[in-house]
Design a protein around this nucleic acid. Structure first.
Ligand code: NAD
Ligand code: NAD
Lengths: 221, 221
DNA sequence: TCCTTATCGATATTTATTTATCGATATCAT
DNA sequence: ATGATATCGATAAATAAATATCGATAAGGA
């Protein structure tokens, strides 16, 4: 039964999955404004995707709407929170308490997404043994012990690129099963560990490229 | 002629565009190691994409390889740098000198990507009038003047979600043509302004979802 | 009550992206 | 020099995603 519900989740396409948080954000806004129902047309007008695409995305979640009225806001919100894992909090740790690592550690928003950053780790004695945003930074040597003790499965990697691979190796040894990698390099891990690359350079490439086209189009008008 | 070269750039698919920085990073590593040539097979072994996909991606850049030897590393590196805009530096400004904004402001890596963050802006008197990472934080009232003076076209938006729309409006008024939005809300801008949404919630959704599947698969084995 | 209309949900079509095939060619070993 | 092989580049096929179509239905007004 639990494997059934999971295999149905599995087949949500990644593009859809990436849009679900946007629907969730909008829904929670609408809910707090007291809206009872919402249609794909209305979501479309606000978020800019086509109503057809939104209807298809929501179909993947199993949400059921009603003709003419659309979806029940509260119900859809719960469905999204469930699928997105916002209801069951997951612990995570950070390795690399630098500019980015500390920013993420201090980010309040994660608790809305069911992510609880427990602590950070670093090699720099200037960083370790201190509290940042109320959370402790430990020496990297404590990583394995704490991760195993607390059964932490998610690791956020924010060390300089040169140390990314060795840090990933430490995380794997510590029992981490999912690495959110902010270093702009590929890291290798065993098959049973997953890596989510968060590469700002990729986004910047898209931005910069679109901007180039925008300005060149304007020059030719 | 310039419109020709641009329209050919325009048709690079976004998935390809997002992979180009990864190729670039690998190429620059190989180049500094003294490698003269590199094949798609070799890139494939390192980055994990199929050689076929890599060959197709590189075809979009106009790079030409040689049978048996592959591509000239230096040549390919230059082509990628050109397409990715790493050679001509673009100025940018940040609005919202908080945790994330300051981390981005202090990020050295951007200079490799041709992005030069000139200054930041904030409303908080605790932040304004100071230097962070050697760069000034000005009051938001200075935004329009400085942006127009320096002809800055790229704005990085790192204010709390509640202020994202009004900040975007200020940026548009200041002549900003591309907004890199880190707030997890949709912002509306005129047609001639582009927005690149950087939504960590989307990435986290993918990560968390894959992790769910991974653990449920392991339970069922 | 009946008609009009907005919406959903299922299915079909189109478009985009990835993956496969295959001939041509350059390199290397014999 | 010859043959084996790795690779590219062009083209084709397969897969994935976005978009369109259309019948069914629920709401609201005539
Ligand atoms: N700062 C940004 O805005 C930004 C943006 C995109 C990507 N990144 C990437 O994120 C990573 C971190 O960037 P940053 O700006 O925070 O750098 P940073 O130098 O400010 O922080 C890196 C931290 O990692 C620690 N560290 C170094 N080696 C370590 C090791 N082996 N084990 C544990 N800790 C170690 C350092 O002591 C430091 O505290 C880099 O890979 C960078 O490319 C940063
Ligand atoms: N910190 C993170 O790791 C992180 C991660 C993902 C997304 N974000 C998003 O990035 C944004 C910033 O996050 P943060 O953690 O840096 O928040 P923060 O509170 O640390 O910083 C926000 C900054 O914006 C300034 N500000 C507020 N209103 C402003 C206005 N109208 N004009 C100019 N400046 C204004 C504040 O004074 C503050 O300095 C938020 O939207 C957040 O959701 C942050």
């Amino acid at each position: 039964m639990s494997s059934d519900s999971n295999s149905s989740i599995q087949q949500i396409p990644e593009p859809t999955l990436r849009r679900l948080p946007l629907y969730h954000q909008l829904l929670s806004e609408k809910h707090s404004e007291g809206a009872k129902n919402i249609s794909c047309t209305e979501i479309s007008n606000i978020l800019g995707f086509t109503a057809i695409q939104i209807r298809k995305d929501l179909a993947y979640t199993g949400a059921v709407g009603r003709s003419k009225t659309g979806y029940n806001v509260k119900e859809l919100l719960y469905i999204l929170e469930d699928i997105l894992g916002y209801t069951k909090t997951k612990d995570a740790l950070i390795v690399g308490a630098g500019n980015l690592g500390l920013a993420l550690m201090g980010y309040d928003g994660f608790k809305n997404y069911g992510l609880n950053i427990v602590a950070a780790f670093d090699t720099d004695p200037q960083k370790t043994g201190k509290l940042f945003h109320g959370k402790a930074v430990f020496d990297i040597s404590e990583l394995e012990k704490l991760a195993k003790e607390k059964g932490i499965k998610i690791g956020i990697l924010t060390v300089p690129s040169a140390f990314a691979q060795e840090t990933a190796d430490l995380m794997v040894n510590a029992g981490i099963k999912a690495i959110w990698n902010f270093a702009p390099v590929k890291i290798n891990v065993p098959d049973d560990v997953l890596v989510q690359h968060e590469n700002l350079a990729s986004s910047l490439a898209v931005l910069s490229h679109k901007l180039d086209n925008l300005t060149s189009v304007q020059r030719n008008e």
